[in-house]
Design a binder for these strands. Sequence first.
DNA 1: TTTTGGAGTGAATCCCTCG
DNA 2: TCGAGGGATTCACTCCAAA
Lengths: 380, 380
Amino acid sequence: MSVQRKGVPAVAPRFSDLAGDQPAWMDSILKGDCVAALERLPKNSVDLVFADPPYNLQLGGDLLRPDQSKVDACDDHWDQFASFEAYDAFTRAWLMAVRRVLKPDGGIWVIGSYHNIFRVGSILQDLGFWILNDVVWLKSNPMPNFRGKRFTNAHETLIWASPSKDAKYTFNYEALKTFNDDLQMRSDWHLPLCTGAERLKDAEGQKVHPTQKPESLLYRVLLSSSKPGDVVLDPFFGTGTTGAVAKKLGRHFVGVEREQAYIDAATARIAEVEPAAPASLSVTKGKRAAPRVPFGNLLEAGLLHPGATLTCPKGKFKASVRADGSLASGEHTGSIHKVGALLQGQDACNGWTYWHIEQNGAKVPIDALRQIFRLRRPAA
Amino acid sequence: MSVQRKGVPAVAPRFSDLAGDQPAWMDSILKGDCVAALERLPKNSVDLVFADPPYNLQLGGDLLRPDQSKVDACDDHWDQFASFEAYDAFTRAWLMAVRRVLKPDGGIWVIGSYHNIFRVGSILQDLGFWILNDVVWLKSNPMPNFRGKRFTNAHETLIWASPSKDAKYTFNYEALKTFNDDLQMRSDWHLPLCTGAERLKDAEGQKVHPTQKPESLLYRVLLSSSKPGDVVLDPFFGTGTTGAVAKKLGRHFVGVEREQAYIDAATARIAEVEPAAPASLSVTKGKRAAPRVPFGNLLEAGLLHPGATLTCPKGKFKASVRADGSLASGEHTGSIHKVGALLQGQDACNGWTYWHIEQNGAKVPIDALRQIFRLRRPAA
DNA sequence: TTTTGGAGTGAATCCCTCG
DNA sequence: TCGAGGGATTCACTCCAAA
């Protein structure tokens, strides 16, 4: 596949099926230096950042394979820094620029290797970002260590952070759990490198970008920590993996990139992406997203009657329902939660799952009645 | 097992079967602050350092499990620091003290989590240490994320470094390769937590140390980067896992520890260690069943797309695939297994064999896609 | 003697809305 | 802004008691 399309504008065409009026920078690639280009975005305009900054690889001479063929190392000039101080200054600058455009309840991901990730992590913390997780991308097919002098470097590290300690960041917990066969998603992600047809090649068959990330990685990043319609910024856009996956998943993107060749490749690539149907983008949500149902509503709706008797799971405690939706059990009165907690001598209790009622000879948690109520009266 | 042995001296008896004339500090535990105690060691006297410094966790209030029981947090005073600056100063001080006693061709390992490891890594680099690898310890049985607000924190990070860029460090490449079924040892190590009989308990059955590391981890560290007879320093000795494994593997140890209770426990523990031929590796080589493949992986890998339609064997039920790997069929949403069970009115259902997709005019169970996935990505 | 079920636990930066 | 209160939230493994 050739990506050398002459005359493609630096700003990719917006895809129109997502929204009506959009600022000019939406779903486009800004050409230029990261810090300068970000000044063209308004403050608090971005929901999520994914950044794959230069790794500051400090390679000595050429690396040879056992058969003496040369390893195609990442020795591009943009990856060279004179010192740790220079790299730190660069990192601080782009992180501060990103911070300005990131919403207070947004999120940021940065990927790196041991060459740079410790600098990035420290500076994130120094700037007041709050680390939520570090995630390790385990490569199922890493490059072996040809000289046998170290362990095979089989992973990279991602840092997920919010702009401040008390930010209300997005995390699609239930969706990720469903994704992972009903088990919590862990901080270790086993994914293959970007190879084969997914890897962009130029007319000569050479890879267009030395560190193109797999779409599977971005899929998981965007699915976990953004919502459909969100704006995702990638300040080191490269060949646009972030943009391609964002478009596929119904998110907006903004990219910043200095090299025209990468911009051309990314623009062509993203144009070919088919967005998923909006309906398939809705994602499993937990109980927290369901509308709150006051217990008293069950009485109003006739699903329960004043005077009904509730029991705890083991039948040890009983309580009777009062007309105002409170419970009475001996001396204790109060909400379903409070009475449950008091009887058990605990600080808290989820009354919906604790209290049961007998129906057709079986004990059913009152949460089942709540579900019936919600079905009868959707979006109450 | 009780480790409360009164009258045990702070300095453990040397074990005499390793060498003849030894300095007094060899195979002993130095009591006191790390920096001060290290002044008692000569310059260039240590071959390898393993350090498990405080992580500076910065925990908030109590954390309760879903069953309302309290998580036994690591809230010891030694893990409290006023600020990142204070933690950095502490880190710089002990690393400089360690650097003095470490031989120019020695090595150092430091373990940490995202709370502290970025500070440690940056300071290592600033002090001129040369990072050789970062290694991730993947926990097979981590503590879950009880509130569902983040990814399960399922790993810790180790940094392996030499004192300078051109150090001739020790790396037993062939030994590790043999250890690892004739494959290069990778930078991801899958090991269980320290639990069961290995975990030191006091007379009341409480764990002696909140963060005791598994011997399997130290086994791999010492096997890979030290030689028999080497001196291994652990400046945060705790209950002496480093010393126990060093003795087992025929290495000398020096520990530094402030708390007398830990010193007592470690001394008793190490006294019971039999220096043995390494035949006890079986714990780290758990047999590999067919790797579990979450349904979501098929989406990431592009074998299925959001919006695809699945059907049951008889074509009676249809469901559409959503971006998070859940299915939607009428009112029902959830995992492939859950939705299959709901539609059939059963308690359980194997979604892999139940759901089919049309390919080239034929209905194929999605299990076929899973097999393709496994072939493409062995040992995911 | 063997199997089954329940309780316990591990370095954790772990809620959110409303008045 | 703060406090009160509703109510949501767990995986792998070990040990011990019970069957």
